[in-house]
Simulated assay, not measured.
Amino acid sequence: MSTHHPAGRRILVTGAGKGIGRATVERLVADGAEVVALSRTAADLRDLHEAFGCDTIEADLADLEAAADAVARALPFDGLVNNAGITALEPALSTGMDTMRRVMEVNTLGPLRLAQVIGNDLVRRGVGGAIVNISSTAADVGLADHAAYCASKAALNALTRVLAKELGPHNIRVNSINPTVTLTPMGQFAWSDPAKSAPVLARIPLGRFLEPPEVAGVVSFLLGNDAAMISGVCLAVDGGLGVD
């Protein structure tokens, strides 16, 4: 098996039930990793277990400490993929504080809390590891009706850099992947209006949006040995959108 694969490593994938998370589980299992899938949806977890044989954790990052406790009971892990994310479409001037809190809880506080649980265990055991945060190109631009989402992903990028700085001396790498619009259920919900999606699509030199397996392949790379000196990077996976 190619050395870049995260073979033999025990990896937690959050938001594993659909979209990028499910594609990531499938890819990591194919690449020889031992995957534990976390989702708030029991039916999705049953399907993942039947399809890929992976262990599962039913937890909702909106109930952060309960999710952290569930992950702590499943230790040890060699890697973490913070993929779980939600969005809310509201104009900034009328975005409710409850909306902001809910989106930040899942998209920003959740990844930090699980990085604490798994990172502290890696440090305690004296072994290296890797954390991959699924962020978004929305971290770097202002998208109408996405105040909560954009803010949560910009904060996630900042956490990626801080964690990389602090965990590097322990041989723990931390990176984020910043995809453009990805054709997941959430992506289709947010970008189904052609009037909204067409201008973005027109600025992508490769001329299309992402498919979930294309993100999963980058996750696998960043978890593996070929990325051994990549840390603190917020990697755009956007078909060239960022060159505009």
Rank of each mutant, 00 (worst) to 15 (best):
L93P: 04
T95H: 12
G96E: 10
G96N: 04
G96V: 00
D98V: 00
T99Q: 07
M100K: 06
R101W: 05
R101L: 04
R102A: 12
R102M: 05
R102I: 00
V103R: 05
V103Y: 10
V103H: 07
V103L: 02
M104R: 04
E105Q: 15
V106D: 05
N107S: 08
L109Y: 14
G110Q: 05
P111Q: 03
L112M: 08
L112D: 01
R113F: 01
L114A: 05
L114Y: 05
L114P: 03
A115H: 10
Q116V: 00
Q116T: 00
V117H: 06
V117L: 02
V117C: 03
V117P: 03
I118L: 05
G119I: 00
G119Q: 07
D121C: 07
L122K: 03
L122S: 02
V123C: 02
V127I: 00
V127M: 01
G128I: 00
G128C: 02
A130G: 03
I131P: 01
I131N: 00
V132T: 02
N133D: 06
I134A: 04
I134V: 10
S135H: 03
S135Q: 02
S135R: 04
S135K: 03
S136R: 13
S136Q: 10
S136P: 11
T137R: 14
T137G: 13
A138T: 14
A139Y: 08
A139V: 01
D140T: 06
V141N: 15
G142N: 09
A144N: 10
H146A: 09
H146Q: 12
A147L: 08
A147S: 10
Y149T: 03
Y149N: 08
A151M: 13
A151P: 12
S152E: 10
K153S: 07
A154I: 00
A155W: 12
A155K: 11
L156G: 02
L156S: 05
N157R: 14
N157C: 15
A158G: 15
A158I: 06
L159I: 01
L159D: 02
V162H: 09
K165M: 09
E166T: 14
G168R: 11
G168K: 11
P169Q: 11
P169I: 02
H170L: 02
H170P: 05
N171R: 15
I172S: 09
I172V: 15
R173Y: 12
V174W: 08
N175G: 08
S176T: 07
S176G: 11
S176F: 12
S176P: 09
I177P: 13
P179L: 09
T180A: 13
V181Q: 11
